[in-house]
């Protein structure tokens, strides 16, 4: 269940951050595209949360898990938690996340957990589009104007310390039984994919030390608490209500 929650929470928190962009994007077409990406991530999160609830077997629904867990019980990585109110940051992060999710879901196609492989089958096509979109923008911003080049490089530098946490090892038993995709095995392909885009964008791969993570064990950034407070407030104000 913890493993599935990790995937679900990455997607849910990403959807929450993407939702902020709708009505704030640089152009109207981008409002539509970012909403699409947010909707895909939200859809993945819902399927995964339903599955996590079923695995747990206590009858918790997707909404119970999204709205009634505290931040120490979330399993997302720090990469997705922080605000992303700069378009360059949003695209740098999307590039990293979608390159990772692309490899992840491709590997999960062969999961021995039938539900996971089913979710992966749909998600792998969606994140391929997200990766395409991020690629498109990172290249345009990197190879655009001197200002956009500098801003895109700064955004990449800011996100880079959070990349390594994506490859935190999963429960060895789950990997051995073929349920989980081994995150450490995804690392090479993910970094390779990102490096190609960065080169095409005339940017440089940052050389910065990775930050200590801990998201998969429930040790989060300070920002996650605010995100959840906003997301959960209304639902928690009306215990037991249907919406």
């Amino acid at each position: 269940m913890e493993y599935v929650l990790g995937l679900a929470d990455d997607a849910l928190v990403t959807a929450q951050r993407m939702g902020w962009w709708i009505s704030r994007a640089p152009e109207l077409e981008e409002d539509v595209a970012l909403a699409n990406i947010g909707l895909d991530q939200l859809g993945q999160a819902r399927s995964l949360l339903q599955h996590a609830g079923a695995l747990e077997g206590d009858g918790r629904t997707e909404d119970d898990l999204a709205y009634w867990r505290d931040d120490r019980d979330f399993r997302c990585v720090h990469l997705v938690e922080r605000p992303q109110t700069d378009f360059g940051v949003a695209m740098a992060r999307l590039l990293i996340l979608s390159a990772y999710q692309n490899e992840l879901y491709a590997a999960l196609l062969g999961s021995t957990d039938g539900v996971l492989s089913g979710v992966a089958g749909k998600a792998v096509k969606e994140v391929a589009y997200h990766l395409d979109h991020a690629h498109h923008w990172v290249v345009r911003l990197g190879d655009g104007t001197p200002e956009s080049h500098a801003r895109m490089q700064a955004a990449l530098d800011a996100e880079w310390p959070f990349v390594e946490e994506l490859f935190t090892p999963a429960d060895p038993a789950l990997v051995a039984s073929g349920v989980a995709a081994d995150p450490t095995a995804l690392r090479g392909a993910v970094l390779d994919r990102i490096a190609k885009v960065v080169a095409e964008a005339t940017l440089t791969l940052p050389e910065v030390a990775p930050r200590l993570g801990g998201g998969r064990e429930g040790r989060h950034t300070e920002q996650l608490g605010y995100l959840l407070a906003e997301m959960q407030h209304l639902a928690r104000s009306h215990p037991g209500a249907r919406w």
Binding site: L12, A15, Q16, G19, W20, I22, L39, L42, G43, A45, R46, L49, E62, D63, A66, Y67, E230, M231, H233, L234, A235, H238, A241, W243
Partner: peptide
């Protein structure tokens, strides 16, 4: 959007 009270309503 950020405060929709269920994930279905948010979507």
């Amino acid at each position: 959007i950020s405060r929709a009270p269920s994930l279905k309503r948010k979507a």
